[in-house]
């Protein structure tokens, strides 16, 4: 009873606070100063058609680096927690056999899903999408592989190598920005090219490809470890 009373009081407190926020929001008529700068100078300064991409990769590129680091840390901690001991690894896992439809569909769909994920992050500067979305789509492909065959072996070393190489390349591109252009993660280390084509916007597509590979391999890593823990109930 006391517990329910306390919960009600806390909820009413939060409700009053959020209602204040809601009533004080006056709706925007125009872009604020920061967004106005990005909208007016985005094309000359970055050259990417998707302004969200230019904010994520160049203007707020450092945030993205920190974000990828957080994702790396969570994936590493999950790996530490779920690592199997040697006995658990050697014992044969009993899993329910999956259906014929799922296995056949997996063979047809997984290459298409991978291709779509790669398309999404290569075209991140032109169309909606980018490294995070593409990486998530690739991880969904890996997930489909594990759903069709839980005992499937994928090369864990390869995932780790892709992950570290793309992480290091991301930082190296950032440092090259200091050496060759205006500052950390500046995209002018490559020519800007013609606006709206695939090879435009300087280093933006390159950075987004590395972000995509890194996010994809980290999410795949989480799924790989979680899949290892599954067993058929005795």
């Amino acid at each position: 009873m006391l517990r329910k009373g306390i919960i009600t009081v806390i909820l009413i407190g939060f409700a009053v606070m959020l209602l204040q926020l809601f009533l004080s929001f006056n709706g925007n008529e125009d872009l604020n100063t920061t967004a106005l700068h990005y909208a007016e100078n985005g094309i000359e300064e970055v050259g990417a058609a998707n302004l969200v991409t230019s904010v994520v990769v160049t203007y707020r590129g450092l945030d993205t680096l920190g974000e990828v680091t957080i994702l790396f840390l969570t994936a590493a901690i999950i790996g530490l927690f779920l690592k199997l001991t040697r006995e658990e690894k050697s014992e044969k896992r009993e899993v329910r056999p999956t259906s014929e439809i799922l296995q056949t569909a997996m063979k047809v769909l997984v290459p298409v899903i991978f291709l779509f994920g790669i398309y999404v992050f290569i075209n991140g500067h032109l169309t909606p999408g980018g490294g995070f979305q593409g990486g998530a789509i690739i991880a969904s492909g890996i997930l489909l592989m594990f759903l069709a065959d839980p005992n499937r072996k994928i090369s864990h070393g390869l995932i780790a190598v892709i992950e570290s190489i793309s992480g290091i390349s991301f930082v190296i591109i950032g440092i090259l920005g200091i050496v060759l252009a205006g500052g950390f993660l500046d995209n002018h280390i490559l020519p800007l090219g013609k606006f709206g084509t695939l090879l435009s916007a300087g280093a933006v597509p390159l950075i987004y490809i590395f972000v995509g590979l890194k996010v994809g391999s980290e999410l795949s890593n989480i799924i790989y470890y979680l899949n290892q823990t599954q067993k058929e109930k005795k």
Binding site: P128, G129, G130, Q133, S140, L143, L226
Partner: peptide, 29 residues
Amino acid sequence: APDVAMTEAAIGSGLSTVIFFYVLNKIRQ
């Protein structure tokens, strides 16, 4: 906001639901 929509559809409703199910299944075992 098509970028956000794509991310939420792929991550929020796809991967995170599956991670919940993996953990729930392991706890039931």
